[in-house]
Write a protein that binds this DNA or RNA. Structure first.
Lengths: 146, 146
DNA sequence: TATTGTTATACTCTATAACTATA
DNA sequence: TATAGTTATAGAGTATAACAATA
């Protein structure tokens, strides 16, 4: 069975996710937890509520993820300086270093994958990927509006 | 923050998954269950064990998915003609029709997305997607071998 | 002895609803 | 009255291990 372009695109996401999974096997890190760390790494210390919004999950879900990450020594809960209801989540030094390394790996993988594309095709490929992502985004938005 | 090509590719997978989710909201169909139906639709009636291999999940997991799908009227368990240990899973007519429709939608989406790519870029884009998928597949295989 | 599917158990991700402390 | 986070509860996906029936 020949794979369509869409199949290929979905396959890429799957492969990448599975590779990430494998990379964190044996640690308490799971995809959802890594995603939280990734968001805090990029956005800096943040309240759990804002984190729930950023991850598009429920506040309750964030509580569980932060619980596990705190116990594993990846994040710290510190009180909000002015709002005593709120909790600020920040990465520990270990986690910060780990995310920085992950970011380097990410960049390296991006480069390796792009190098796998014929040099003459690269620019068109990048434009195509952009166009498809934007189109799909618009389609999903339109669909969820109706 | 500018998105890299890899980010875009991952975003495409995410968007698509979320759209599928939304499409089956309100039914007992979930991503894992739809995936099982999809595999049976394409491969035909199959034992649960073979299904576990195809889906790359545990046999126990298949039992649960088939339980739910059987209760919902999407699949039927029938005895294997010669091996009395084994169970054959087949789609009901309803599910078969639903999967056929999904396949048509899938093809339509593929076409719409490709049409979003500049005609001059299309061939190069398709070649690039193929190259990236194959490269990533090779990378994952190599990584899991070590 | 090996294989198929199931029961038993457990962990993770996710959600909604009710509650507490604070704003 | 509204908001931040937690407790309570529940469903889904996943895994391993033990087991029964069959090959």
């Amino acid at each position: 069975m020949e794979l369509t372009v869409l199949d290929r695109l979905l396959q890429i996401g799957d492969l990448f996710a599975r590779d990430m999974d494998r990379a964190f096997a044996g640690t308490p890190l799971t995809p959802a937890r890594v995603r939280l760390l990734w968001v805090v790494h990029h956005g800096g210390p943040v309240t759990q509520h804002a984190l729930a919004d950023a991850l598009e999950v429920s506040p309750r879900n964030v509580t569980g993820l932060v619980d596990a990450l705190e116990e594993g020594g990846y994040v710290e809960r510190t009180p909000h300086p002015t709002d005593r209801r709120a909790t600020i989540v920040r990465l520990t030094e270990t986690a910060e270093a780990q995310m920085a390394e992950m970011q380097r790996d990410h960049a390296e993988i991006t480069e390796t994958l792009l190098n796998a594309v014929d040099p003459h095709d690269r620019a068109a490929f990048a434009r195509g990927v952009d166009a498809v992502a934007l189109k799909l985004e618009a389609m999903v938005e339109e669909a969820s509006a109706s």
